[in-house]
Design a protein around this nucleic acid. Structure first.
Length: 587
RNA sequence: UGGGGAUUAGUGUAACGGUAGCACAACUGACUCUGACUCAGUUAGUCUAGGUUCGAAUCCUAGAUCCCCAGCCA
């Protein structure tokens, strides 16, 4: 298993990307006292997806590269959407990815924005007293109506309310004296700014709702723009990395911290200045044939179009985990796609490739037949069973061999036989000869069919001189090797095959509704027949991680948690590359 | 229409005034007891138009295209 540990050190092999360049320049300039401290700040309102994985790996990787720390922080400022279930799943996913926030050299810790509510509130009162914030009694609809246009300013009739009065109202808001939506605390910035985010943004709104962490302590909840920079500041974050759509929010991020710091200093009545991190934006990950929005994924789950957040077809981290992806391969993928400020769409095939690359190194091989076709070997000595030694992993010489029983009644893959094969079909056909992997060469002498004309049994002969699958002395050649199982020894197992969830490269591009591009047949469940050693290996596997194996010539498979003792279920993680499929599509 | 960003082979991504390189995809071929893996090779690119310069993907000017922004979401 030594191949498993070989993961290239990411930042070493390539030129530094723009974030690394920024950090190196900051380090060079002595900013932050040489510290690097990053964070991943999810809102617990859904499960993490592969796009989040990129952000997690980025933030954690930066901390690792520069000997810094990495925090996991829940940005839990909206109780209406957040749940403990999501908190739990996020913690698990981040750890599974190998980005440990509470153990190891990068451990910065686990935090909740909601634990800072008291501190944030004190700063809010400070801004009110400084005349930088005021209580506004406009309704949401009125604010919207008075937003103005890019050219005309917004209108806010309460912005000149005296600080004392705002302070009194703010305290009443906090005390629960007012219903949802009746008033807000707003920052007094610039009603005419072409950046709408600066048109006196809301800092606090009233939400009478139970919070997963603070329970009923608060009915006043901070908005993202007010809260986020403060969270970063409190934790001593140096580089606050977020996605491109927050670019227009950066002036606000800076404004709030500057507003708090105004008048602060060593001898100030307000206290010392607070830490001011730097927000930097990068382009989020997009994948072909994939929808990444949490809202949409939630809909898939709620409308039962998939079996849950961890359905192996979902682009969630838990979905990939259940499907059988390794964290190593997801990390390698995130490293591979790079970090820039350009919007892009990555070919989902690259994720699959990263997975194949890792699994090829570590997955033991077995033989299994998905759609069986019976083969009877006419000249096989009746009643005899031979044990065939099979290589466990050609990529890993230390993996050894196992015995697979061989007999006169076999099962092969339906796709490996064609009655009237095209020119480039090298497998079994009437009169044709193939190698059974590690076993013998067989020749098809006749085909038995059912009433509908479908082949149900192949009658073949074997060549004893090809024992072990080796070339016979007469110099004969075969162009194909196929997999097989002994019919009477094979175990039946459930296999789940997945196709992409969407038929369109960019779901929703056609009609505007991503649901219109859902692939109706993205799941196929089969009863497959596998060699006995596989069934045994699975029973002894650890339960916290799936057993991952290669079915020779078919793909990589992982045991699903639905498995029961003696009744394993295999998810196909990804197929092997298949040039024959490509050849067929070419026509 | 206002503001903020981005444009380099099919897709991604380097090159930071000095030979446009890499990965994936595609296509050839070699190897092969997995039509896998591996290896070798081929095709193919600086959004446009001007300018500065001995020299421009890089700097300047003008334009084009795409993305984001008018939640009491994050």
């Amino acid at each position: 298993m030594s191949a498993d540990t070989a993961e290239p050190s990411p930042a070493a092999a390539r030129p530094p990307h723009f974030l690394e360049q920024i950090i190196e320049a900051d380090l060079q300039a002595g900013r932050w006292g040489g510290r690097v401290h990053t964070r991943f700040p999810p809102e617990p309102n859904g499960y993490l997806h592969i796009g989040h994985a990129k952000s997690i790996c980025l933030n954690f990787g930066l901390a690792r590269t520069y000997g810094g720390r990495f925090n996991l922080r829940f940005d839990d400022t909206n109780p209406a959407k957040e749940e403990q279930e999501y908190v739990d799943s996020i913690c698990r996913d981040v750890k599974w990815l190998g980005c440990d926030y509470d153990e190891g050299p990068q451990a910065g810790g686990l935090f909740f924005a909601s634990n800072y509510f008291e501190q944030m509130y004190r700063w809010a009162e400070e801004l009110v007293r400084k005349g930088k914030a005021y209580v506004c009694e406009l309704s949401a609809e009125e604010v919207s109506a008075k937003r103005g246009t890019p050219q005309t300013p917004a209108i806010s009739p309460f912005r000149d309310r005296p600080p004392d009065e705002s302070l009194r109202l703010l305290r009443a808001m906090r005390a629960g004296a007012h219903p949802n939506g009746s008033m807000t605390l707003r920052a007094r910035i610039d009603l005419a700014s072409p950046n709408f985010n600066l048109r006196d943004p809301v800092m606090y709104r009233i939400v009478h709702e139970h919070h997963h962490n603070t329970g009923g302590d608060w009915c006043l909840y901070p908005m993202y723009d007010w809260a986020h920079g403060l969270e970063d500041s409190i934790e001593g974050i140096t580089h606050s990395i977020c996605t491109l759509e927050f670019e227009n929010h950066r002036p606000l991020y800076d404004w709030f911290i500057d507003a708090i710091n105004e008048g602060r200093g060593p001898d100030s009545e307000w206290g010392p200045r607070i830490h001011h991190p730097r927000q930097i934006e990068f382009a989020r990950l997009n994948l072909t044939y994939t929808v990444m929005s949490k809202r949409f994924l939630l809909r898939l789950v709620r409308e039962a179009r998939v079996k849950g957040w961890d359905d192996p077809r979902m682009p969630t981290i838990s979905g990939f985990r259940r499907r059988g992806y390794t964290p190593e391969s997801i990390r390698a993928f995130c490293e591979d796609v790079g970090v820039t400020r350009q919007n892009s769409v990555i070919d989902v095939g690259r994720l699959e490739n990263a997975c194949r690359e890792h699994l090829n190194r570590i997955a033991p091989r077995y033989m299994g037949v998905l759609r069986p076709l019976e083969v009877v070997i006419d000249n096989w000595p009746a009643g005899t069973v031979e044990q065939i030694a099979c290589v466990n992993n050609p990529e890993d010489p230390g993996a050894g061999t196992r015995d697979v029983p061989f007999s006169g009644k076999l099962l092969i893959e339906r796709d490996d036989f064609m009655e009237s094969p095209p020119k480039k079909f090298f497998r079994l056909a009437p009169g044709a000869e193939v190698r059974l992997r590690y076993a013998y060469w067989i020749r098809c002498v006749s085909v038995e069919k059912d009433g509908a004309g479908n082949p149900v049994r192949l009658r073949c002969t074997y060549d004893p001189a090809t024992r072990g699958g080796n070339d016979p002395p007469d110099g004969r050649k075969v162009k194909a090797t196929i997999h097989w199982v002994s019919a009477d020894h094979a175990r039946e197992v459930e296999v789940r095959l997945f196709d992409r969830l969407f038929n369109a490269e960019q779901p929703g591009a056609r009609t505007g509704d991503q649901f219109d591009d859902l692939n109706p047949s993205s799941l196929e469940v089969l009863r497959a027949r596998v060699e006995p050693a596989l069934a045994e290996a699975v029973n002894t596997a650890r339960s916290d991680e799936p057993a991952r194996v290669q079915f020779e010539r078919l793909g990589y498979f992982a045991t699903d948690p639905d498995s029961r003792p003696g009744a394993p279920i295999f998810n196909r993680i990804v197929t092997l590359k298949d040039l024959w499929v490509k050849e067929q599509k070419r026509g």
